[in-house]
Design a protein around this nucleic acid. Sequence first.
DNA 1: CTACGGTCGATGACATGTCAACCACACTGT
DNA 2: ACAGTGTGGTTGACATGTCATCGACCGTAG
Lengths: 165, 165
Amino acid sequence: MDAPRWLDGREDRAWRGYRRMRRLLDLELARDLARDAGLSEPDYDVLSDLSETPDGRLRLSELADRMLWSRSRLSHHLARMRQRGLVDREECATDGRGTVVVLTAQGRRAIEAAAPGHVAAVRRHLIDLLEPDELAALERFTHRVVDRLAAGRAPRDDTDAPTDG
Amino acid sequence: MDAPRWLDGREDRAWRGYRRMRRLLDLELARDLARDAGLSEPDYDVLSDLSETPDGRLRLSELADRMLWSRSRLSHHLARMRQRGLVDREECATDGRGTVVVLTAQGRRAIEAAAPGHVAAVRRHLIDLLEPDELAALERFTHRVVDRLAAGRAPRDDTDAPTDG
DNA sequence: CTACGGTCGATGACATGTCAACCACACTGT
DNA sequence: ACAGTGTGGTTGACATGTCATCGACCGTAG
């Protein structure tokens, strides 16, 4: 650990800005979502991913992978959402161990009611504040960073932690 | 709520990329930090903010404001960090209600041991992957977004939720 | 001084996320 | 068929974060 390369002025401001934006955006979006739709951000994400499939159904592990959640976390969260009637479970026809997560009619109504306001908030607080070149840069570098990070992850691991050293 | 303006292709890719990057970066940085330094990200942030002051001391509410945490959350977290010997509490000389959070010698050693590796990880997984124009864009737009969001927040509110409608 | 409304921080109850087993089933080789 | 090994999902214990409330103290007005 010799002579660490600290962040210079611009790098430090970018990094701090990123973290601060992240936090404020989270607080704001979560607040709006809870107030207007009675959903948390995780709730919204689950419903959103489900609603993007043709039949509102996904294997639990498939959903967990898409969301980058551990199966454990998703299982717990689904149990809570299920009690609220937003989703349901079905046995998987092709794999006796499997669970299929199903979007209920109520869940679909919830995401459809929440989506316009949520997208509007995302625009108002972030997207519409970006210049075209900034939006393009955001798209480019986030995907670059994601590709690198995803490459470093173990192919399958329930713990959300890659097993490399 | 008439005819919501959905995100177009580029906007949608940027927004999804942002959220995915955010999640993967969090997992990776938290993992590295835990493995190499035995600290969580919140631990690191607390220690980092404290170590940036001249004497390693901050009023609890001042620290909470800088971190955008509720006083309650910080109070709970400090109780845990205190049990591990990373920080301590002192009474505030100028305000009988107040608490001063103090970085202990052990806490200073912990942050100084953790920082080089953490900064290296931030570089490796994010900063060093950005082109100069992307870094500049990140700095610019995050600060713009933060300014807007900060302006919308009530000046003082323990709940982390602005009181506007 | 005393009353009053506000702020500081701690606390307990509860919601959420993590981690380490665990069971049931799938797959492979023999 | 049937071990042995691996995967899918659940569970319980625990760590962390949120929310409402409280006691102590501050500031100001009478």
